[in-house]
Design a protein around this nucleic acid. Structure first.
Lengths: 216, 216
DNA sequence: AAGCCAATCAACCAATTGGTTGATGCGCAG
DNA sequence: CTGCGCATCAACCAATTGGTTGATTGGCTT
């Protein structure tokens, strides 16, 4: 069979250049297109499919400064007929990201600081229809499946978001149109689920599990 | 004059490859060495100087997974005799980072998502001994100078770090070998400087100003 | 229909946190 | 040398937060 045809999706020109250089040095890889964000990526997949030169693997970043984010784009691409495998290649190995990406239909999750050889074999696996997870990522996933973290309910997430603002219970209550008592009840549930016992620790955990984002 | 001789310092192979590819496409640039972290970078600078093939510009990432971080490395390099200009090239445009880097002696601060052309001219400026700041960065610096945010003292930063852990005042006091009263005094000062009035808000601000990092 | 969970609220008490005033020793810059 | 900022501590009070028990409503699942 011929070359593996790759679409790069990343908002950083530097990273795209790096992946292109790295991959074209290996035998059997061709970068046929690039996109700076999810929306453009979808169009590229469709365009190339119509030209009869379909993409074999999509290399997708999750954090996209502007435009459609990686998880949404992955979901959209997997809904196309004859969708190519999507390999996530990102900077962080955070729980929420991994799960969201896998649920969106990604066939692998690699970290950007992985050695070139590891990236190469991941792309190859993905092209062959297999799943490839970085060791760090796989370990995390296993741990999470064996010991599933109870997810916060929608309302609880809202609360944590306000919590991170530094608002007091009274202010949160006013903002959400509920009583202070209810806020406290929610907080107790949140502490339980996150395995902490005060609001400050809750914020730390929420930020590091990317339940909320703190700024950036 | 001849080529501009560049040392790349970044912990991500992908990014190094990208910069190398990007720069060598332009006329007049040569990447003479690479290093995955600060310690190795210093050694490279010294090694090449001894060979009589000194580095003209160091391109330095700030966030380094392991080993010496970018600010420390910059400081160390600038202490060498005949030190080359150090151009910071990083992902985030955060206040604390910029100031620390400039204080450490960096001659410029570019963002990784900058267009190639901008990176090219920044390297050129740096090689010529000039200072180059990304527009976003320059704007921030100006704003900060006109309206200087009081910096947290070293001790105060230590406190904020523990704060973000979710520790109570008592625990923090024990950890730092000071009394609870002192912890409270520090906190009041911290609230003042950050313009907030409780610990939760302080964490938010500290995280978003990258005074502390929350996980990663 | 019965059971469960999310979401809502109340009342109460213990513990923690926030705010204030005041005081000491140390080092550094003018 | 004098002043300023940093770091340290004390004592006290008000406000907030955390913990608990108990109860109601509505939606979803079995």
């Amino acid at each position: 069979m011929g070359e593996i045809r790759i679409l790069l999706v990343d908002d950083h020109p530097v990273v795209r250049a790096g992946l292109r250089a790295m991959l074209t040095e290996f035998e059997g890889f061709t970068v046929v297109a690039e996109a700076p964000e999810g929306g453009a990526a979808i169009k590229e997949v469709q365009r190339l499919a119509m030209l009869g030169e379909p993409v074999d693997v999509v290399l997708m970043d999750l954090q996209m400064g502007a435009g459609m984010d990686g998880v949404s784009a992955t979901k959209a691409i997997k809904e196309l007929t004859g969708a190519p495998p999507v390999l996530i290649l990102t900077t962080y190995d955070t729980d929420a990201d991994i799960l969201a990406a896998v649920e969106a239909g990604a066939s692998g999750y690699m970290l950007k600081d992985a050695p070139p050889e590891q990236i190469r074999s991941a792309v190859q696996s993905a092209a062959a229809g297999q799943t490839a997870l970085a060791p760090e990522v796989a370990a995390r996933l296993m741990g999470r499946i064996r010991n599933p973290a109870p997810a916060l309910s929608g309302r609880e997430v809202e609360l944590v978001e306000l919590l991170a603002t530094g608002m007091g219970n009274k202010a949160i209550a006013k903002q959400l149109f509920i009583s202070e008592a209810t806020v406290k009840t929610h907080l107790v549930h949140i502490y339980d689920k996150l395995g902490v016992d005060n609001r400050t620790a809750a914020i730390s955990v929420a930020v590091s599990r990317r339940i909320i984002r703190s700024a950036g």
